[in-house]
Amino acid sequence: MNIENTSSQMRKGILEFCILSIIKQEEAYPSDIIEKMKTANLHIFEGTLYPLLTRLKNAEMLTYRWVESNSGPPRKYFSLTEKGAGFYKELESTWNELNNAVKMVIKQQ
């Protein structure tokens, strides 16, 4: 069994949740998201983020607007839609359940 792969799978599962959570706190520019993930010690490739954001946007979870930038063309700033907020809540409760469950299981050992 490939341990690296397992933990990668685990991280993959929560990536969406993390990104939604960051965007939920504040309208965010992709590199902001990367930066915030980094400070939380979650390192991702930026190349991973863009497709994910586009997918979430196409699923109407996210919306974006163009914001003027000093250093060039405007940037996309993402925010949650109502649907996205609902989705986030579901994810959140799932996460909490899982978290508690896992903790319990670990404790019992």
Binding site: S8, R11, K12, L15, L42, H43, I44, F45, E46, G47, T48, P51
Partner: peptide
């Protein structure tokens, strides 16, 4: 940015 072959790995 990551190379396409890295994208599947999600987290570095």
């Amino acid at each position: 940015m990551g190379r396409p072959e890295d994208f599947d790995e999600v987290f570095t």
